[in-house]
Nucleic acid binder design. Structure first.
Lengths: 141, 141
DNA sequence: ACTAAATAGTTGCTTAGCTAACTAATTTCA
DNA sequence: TGAAATTAGTTAGCTAAGCAACTATTTAGT
């Protein structure tokens, strides 16, 4: 049976969480995806960060970050300026509109997290973290 | 910190497993994706299954299954025939080439599974399954 | 100083997930 | 029986991941 397979369950859970989160955002009329929120949040927490660093923090590749940054820029949530020190780099910063969105999103994201992890004991939260890290480490070797 | 977040870890682990699996398939010269293998496997195990049922088993939507089935058909791994009882439905079956591929894939998939779950105790495997199910159930309510 | 290598970012192509809208066939039920 | 609803599958449009190839700038090494 495929659907008892651990990978299947991990992948399915990830999809379900994204889907649930996306629906919650939509129901609040938020014009961002969960992934875009992750990028926005990183930029908010790291003033003048560049795209490579965003990618490192979110473990995503350059093209993916490039495209998401462009979307956020188009929607006026962030500002993208070429670095004066090193003109290969960009410096990303959050706009006023972006800050407002972050504030609006904060409780919504908390609610999403809370819902998914509802009824999980501290033990279980710790446990799943440890197991997922083990799986990732297995794949690195 | 985003990357200590449980959802982030689940999603990242799923991505890592897919990537690892994809590389293993590629290194064996297999012209299938992990997801396509899932579909092929379901068809192999359920002779004359239709696409809706494949979608139910893999928890994927109709368009996704439709495309993957077409890819598998193009690559001659499966045969797609309209059902004679109900001409809205198709009947999917595996071709000889498909069966051969399944046989070839079997040990490779086992290796991928084994690698990811290496060093996990039975207890941990049971545990992650339970926790992931809890999370999914939380989101359903 | 000048070439070669490394780095940051972009573009293009493919697969997959999700939604919505659509066609065609089948069921329902009044 | 015939209109309305349901079902199976497809198509189209969007986002995102992954890969490869590319440009432009910066850094290293001789």
């Amino acid at each position: 049976m495929i659907n008892t397979n651990t990978y299947f369950q991990i992948e399915l859970t990830a999809r379900r969480i994204r889907q649930y989160g996306q629906n919650v955002l939509k129901s609040h009329g938020i014009d961002l995806t969960i992934e875009q929120w992750l990028v926005l949040n990183v930029i908010n927490e790291n003033e003048l960060i560049n795209q490579i660093r965003v990618g490192e923090l979110l473990v995503k590749d350059k093209p993916t970050i490039s495209r998401m940054v462009n979307q956020l820029e188009q929607k006026k949530y962030i500002i993208k300026t070429p670095s004066s020190n090193d003109s290969r780099k960009v410096e990303l910063s959050i706009s006023k509109k972006g800050k407002k969105m972050i504030d609006e999103l904060y409780p919504i994201i908390e609610k999403i997290r809370f819902t998914g992890l509802n009824k999980l004991s501290e033990n279980e939260k710790e446990s799943i973290k440890t197991i997922l890290e083990k799986i990732q480490k297995n794949l690195d070797d």
